[in-house]
Design a protein around this nucleic acid. Sequence first.
RNA 1: GCGGACGUGGCGGAAUGGUAGACGCCGGGGACUUAAAAUCCCCUGAGCCUUGCUCGUGUGGGUUCGAGUCCCACCGUCCGCACCA
Length: 904
Amino acid sequence: MTSERFDPSSADVRWQAAWDAAQTFRADDASPRPRSYVLEMFPYPSGRIHIGHVRNYTMGDVLARYKRMQGFEVLHPMGWDSFGMPAENAAMEQGVHPGGWTRANIKAMTAQLKRLGFSFDWSRELSTCEPEYYGHEQSLFLDLYAAGLVTRKESAVNWDPVDMTVLANEQVIDGRGWRSGALVEKRKLSQWFLKITQFADELLDGLGALKNWPDKVRLMQENWIGKSQGLQFTFWSADRATEVEVFTTRPDTIFGASFVAIAADHPIAQGLAAGDPAVADFIAECRKGGTTAAEIETQEKLGFDTGIRLVHPFDPAIELPLYIANFVLMDYGTGAVFGCPAHDQRDIDFARKYGLPVTRVVADGDLTDPVFVGDEAYTGPGALVNSRFLDGMDVEAAKAEVIARAEQSQWGRGTTVWRLRDWGVSRQRYWGTPIPFIHCGDCGVVPVPKDQLPVVLPEDVDFSVPGNPLERHPTWKHVDCPNCGKAATRETDTLDTFVNSSWYFLRFASQPADRPFDPEVIKQWLPVEQYIGGIEHAILHLLYARFWTRALAHIGLIDVKEPFASLFTQGMVTHETYSRVDPGNGQVVYFSPSEIEKRAVPASPEQAPHETPSGIATSGVDVTVALTGMGIGVAQGSVSPEIAIPVTGQAMKVEQGRVTKVFKRGTDEELNAGRVIKMSKSKKNVVDPDDIIAQYGADAVRWFMLSDSPPERDLPWSEAGIEGCGRFVQRLWRIASGNPQAAADAASNPALHKLMHRTIAGVGADIEALQFNKAVAKLYELAGGIEKAAPSAEKIAAIAVLPRLASPMMPHLAEEMYHALGGTGLVAEAAWPDVDPAALVDDEVTIAIQVLGKLRDTVTVAKGLPREELEALALASEKVQRALDGKAVKKVIVVPDRLVNLVA
RNA sequence: GCGGACGUGGCGGAAUGGUAGACGCCGGGGACUUAAAAUCCCCUGAGCCUUGCUCGUGUGGGUUCGAGUCCCACCGUCCGCACCA
């Protein structure tokens, strides 16, 4: 019972229902099978599934399905990272409730995901905005608080005085709120922090064990944590009235010091400013500087000599001027440094500008002259010079010596400074996890008792006025103090949404109603065997999740320390862009590539004004791209003339097949074929997954996501590419439905037998290595091999194995093929085919014969032929003799079963 | 500026130091068809004096019997960080 064509529109839903009915993808905690936890980063419910999600989840799905076929009990869950700002923005813009908006989005996106046939265990679906999730998060937060890992401290935030809200750094544009346009103020607020710095060392050391993480991500985290070892010590003025604590990673260069500099925000600078308007002016000048990358780069080094002189710790006779400098950061180290211009580029820039001494203390080869020439600091290795007792030591020895002496004389100590800050988790926002604390006039900050959890976010809130709706809710924040019973108020800050995503992988593994998770169940699933997501989460999300896992292990709730054994960061899905500068207002207008089709039209109206564009390129006529005229003065919805762009970039208007106008290059009407970039609404180059599933079926879309580009690189979307995938789906279907009867006397086909087993082994290895593009190529080869083969038992066997090989990637088609071939049950539950190791061994090999490293001939011989025979065969070749041209062979390189290279 | 990745046909890309361009897309030719779609077959890096030869993996050097692959320098593209003491 087979139809001519595979019809995804009926097959997809049919098999999705079958998997559902059989509970195929339900992970069983009680299963005797070994465990495999495959996880993709869960999405924010923005409204629509993006093609990038499709790529991400397809990769995870292939691995999860393959692992299941390999006999693993697979946990492959899906859920929603559903707290966050877009819901509040929608509430303000559209007058809807954040919860309603979010839940409607989840519903729509769930339907989209189901259309793709992903093998998710939907019974474990979770949504972080529901009390069933965030209530447990509050409980964990209280546990961390009890363990001393949560603190409250004053911290500066970006405050938008019009919207009455705190802004993230990314929301501050040119010093103004992105929505209100109001000048942003720095405000000090008492905020909640998680003590991630307490785990800085562990988080850094732990990276070393994450062998299956991309080096790039480990390096980014390492830099983010930013460990620096050095010496912290105090400079005093001769009269002991001023002391400046500095930190340096180069204590060895202490005899090259020529100034001390403090940040504009440093207490000493602030103190001086109070009594001296000139200092105050200078500090104001420093603050003016922008904070963007480009501004910092071009910013000049500025300094202000305070007039204060500090004495050198090793010799009171040496005095150093104390400057206030704009390049010193208050929030790193101690907010003060000593400058050694000869060996630090920043310091030499500063010293040259203010005429300070530049003394060489590390020899650059034979250069030992104390007078340092030039404007480029020497930061390389060398021996200490001009440094008294340090002379002759190498840099490392000198560092150790200075630290030892400082500690002995008690004016300094060896120390470690981190770039990593404690994690501020307070958000003055409505749509987040309420922080479970109560402020009492008498008792201070009191944790909400666990039996009163969850602290539920009220739904009846008002977004018509700016500010945090929790603040002005009539009843919500008013509670009695759990401690003394007096009237008190709830904390109205909510948790950073990164907290939600810092432990969701635990809740997926185990979700009892009465506690966050069951440690015994966690033990059998964690760590996640393979985590897949975007590189944009290389630092924050992945660092926070690692921290939470360690913190929970630290307080004994779990005993896994690293949540993700392997990490894979996939590339983006890109698409071409088309744009044009609108001559009217000078703004760039984008056109959707979906409106573009290739066709030939005359290159100019002059050339052939009445030619009808045909589908055929003829010589002398440019191949052009025709674009319907959305956005070029044509009202949407009307019948548009077309805009055609020849490959050279010149655009023309085509009406009813006639070129009526040319948008000349170099004029203000030029139309540009832009770069291939990430899909984005504003560039009008998005492709909606629903549209392409409807057109080609889920399997073709999945297959495209895996084809061609290596998964870590960007994948360029193309219409031709997805069409090719659709064709391959049909091709496989024809193979399976073609009824390949082997004639009784048909010759056997050992080559196909080998190809089949090579493919089974290769596809499996490629999937495990996440090299899906290679697995795809191997399946194409097997399909081609089967099609070319004459009827034989091997051909029947190869066809029979095809559904199982295709199942992880094209699950709906695979089920259909499996049943067409008489399979019972579900191929999704079938075992991955066995490999015959004997079939992987070739008994014949092709030997390359080279002369002087250049290929001259090949011979096919039995495997394992001895060297002498290979050599003789090589010399017997006519082509080789011609290449040798009578020259004597001086040397023969033989690589058995591979090649012979004759050196003449 | 610092750190990292990458550079192979018209395009996406294959290639444990050992036959460069697997596989796919595009393109060309043919078969089938009244015709089209679909499908199938063949060709498809460049050049040439075409039984074959020469050149060819960003550029220039090097190591090697042999380099897309290893080393050095440079050019270009992309990404991350950013005055971190």
